[in-house]
Design a protein around this nucleic acid. Structure first.
Lengths: 353, 353
DNA sequence: GCGGCATAGGCAATCGATTGCAATTTGCTT
DNA sequence: AAGCAAATTGCAATCGATTGCCTATGCCGC
């Protein structure tokens, strides 16, 4: 039941670890080159030889030494995925948006037979400095807001980088993201079309994506001749726990609103939750609209009406584009058009005020 | 705005990529050994030399070639985390339990300055065979049920493996897990103590952990002199979507129960959701108890009463134990005692039948 | 029976960092 | 000023797989 390292019971026999092609070569009486070629399917070895080598490799439980291969070939068949969390605090890989994204990227990479190195720290912040020949490329999710300058600087010396985020003036790196201003507009238009006038906004001012969404909301309000009530602009942090607390404070403040446009689904779910606890009915008393369309938005309880960012599309686009970069193609940033998903959290305004 | 690979505009200058210690050494007029030692903080280089080297390295944007270092040192400072998903189908890294676990492990590894290689395929199923010198150890989450034999076999040739899962007779690998039978017992005892008699069980028979939980439930029922109604044993798949569908079918079947003991929180959340849609009140009409204590259990809507598996403890224990293995210690499997978290989804039985 | 060519396989260099050992320099003692 | 020890630095081998180039073997046709 218990495990011990180095079961070197068998006297002089070296520990199982570390069968090399040289070991195989010696046993078979061939050269290491032949073993290598046989294993890699080169046409330069005879069929019988190949079989013998394969057989021996299996028997000896041979495993390539990836470090050696990578060193020699200069490619790692590995992609680094970074969630810049540590810098921000309170944020975890387990944020639903990250998770949904990671799931897509991971499957996409697996399909291509690439490995995934996962970081929650931005490369330029790591102790062990950035490392080369470790990965062939890097995907960064989020953090663009806090780190734009740093990313720009980093991108100058690191080519194969794709970032999930908004297109920003002067960016030196490649992005995939949705059009947040348009998304904000769509949300606002939907809410207005339902007849709402007293509209609150819940978002994290530190998140540039959310600021763009808010901006879209402002635009539409202005165009519709409605004015935004500054006392209904609530600052709510990105993370679930913080969002809940802030939402509680907002609702407890007693300010009245008929609709809540939220900067993210997590915020929307928390706002909705708090509203219900406070006895307000969604969508009868208040409409709530989210942003992202994370899977949680439609998994439990009331399904959230939201702006869909098409995370699966975005994720596989990130991977596609990274591979394009790696193979030296010249590509441009991509913006995915956001889409309205009407579900159960918004309703028409009832009593005209 | 667009990015191009190989901006080799600057004529003969080789592309930025790949500054080596030799380049630095040549520029500084010292040997590569000195550069290496200076960078790694060896006391064998003079202070002024070290400063010159560090400066030059920064200026040249030098990055260690991890492949070379790993090859030479025989250690990768990397741990592989595996979620055996592909084999099972329908399962994703985004399952809440996995995600909560991954978040802990990722932080724990970051803290120790180790990197995390993420897989959703079991090593013995990968095309590129298993690879050595890639990682110093491996943590496997779930999949024990479907793969026990395979894991056992694999463990015979791979030492540094820790698996999250139940302790199983004849296991050759190290596990960290909670005591599922006890957990099942605690759940059942709680439900019975509330006066419930018509108790349903929702679980995935393919998941050995869940089977143990059901077993605990059976034991307690027997001890209490209650008998389990086989028509209230519902087979529900592990994943959220499948769980919802199965729960709907179960509730639609019209079989009556006052309490639902669930094999996981995801199942419980879905059961609760379906019950509510069907017009039954939780906990007034039905008590629902989950298992796991994932963060979703207490984030939105009604807080789930559940059996806590102490995921953060488990996650960091997995990491701790792996490091013990790596450093050659002799350690035994660990079982974490599960704990009852009373929240809002269970209530006392009202009308005695 | 011989030249010629294809095929299979071996030799040795290479990738970049590390490190034991040797060599050199520095600095200090008497 | 000579003698030594200590502090620095360099040399060269090493980690394991890959691959360009060369050699040996065999096979063919004429």
């Amino acid at each position: 039941m218990s495990k011990k390292k180095n079961d070197s019971d068998m006297a002089g026999n070296e520990v199982t670890a570390g069968v090399t092609i040289y070991d195989l070569a010696e046993n078979l009486g061939v050269s290491a080159s032949t073993v290598s070629r046989a294993l890699s399917g080169s046409p330069k070895v005879g069929e019988k030889t190949r079989q013998r080598v394969l057989e021996a490799a299996r028997a000896a439980n041979y495993m390539v030494n990836t470090a050696a291969r990578t060193l020699r070939q200069g490619k790692a068949r590995t992609v680094e995925v970074v969630f810049p969390l540590a810098a921000v605090g309170r944020r975890q890989i387990s944020e639903p948006f990250y998770v949904d994204m990671l799931a897509v990227i991971s499957e996409e990479l697996t399909r291509r037979n690439y490995d995934l190195l996962l970081f929650n720290t931005v490369p330029w912040m790591r102790d062990n400095a950035s490392q080369s020949n470790r990965v062939d490329g890097m995907i960064m999710i989020g953090g663009q807001g806090h780190e734009h300058e740093a990313i720009n600087k980093f991108a100058a010396s690191y080519q194969n980088l794709v970032v999930w985020g908004a297109k920003v003036k002067g960016q030196q790196y490649l992005t995939v993201g949705s059009d947040n201003i348009t998304g904000g507009r769509i949300a606002a238009e939907h809410i207005i079309s339902l007849g709402h006038k007293k509209i609150a906004y819940f978002g994290d001012p530190m998140e540039p994506e959310m600021e763009q969404r808010r901006e879209g909301f402002f635009q539409v309000m202005a165009e519709a001749g409605l004015k935004v009530d500054p006392s209904l602009l609530f600052r709510v942090p990105f993370d679930a726990r913080g969002a809940k607390i802030a939402a509680q404070a907002a609702v407890a403040s007693g300010r009245h609103f008929d609709a809540a446009i939220c900067g993210s689904d997590v915020i929307a779910l928390n706002v909705m939750d708090v509203l219900k606890s406070a006895g307000r009915k969604v969508p009868d008393d208040v409409s709530v609209i989210g942003y992202d369309d994370i899977s949680l938005a439609y998994s439990y309880g009331q399904k959230l009406t939201t702006i869909c960012q098409h995370i699966p599309v975005g994720g596989s686009l990130l991977v596609d584009m990274l591979f394009s970069l790696i193979s030296g193609e010249d590509i441009a940033p991509v913006t995915i058009p956001p889409t309205l998903k009407i579900r159960e959290s918004c309703g028409v305004q009832r009593r005209r005020q």
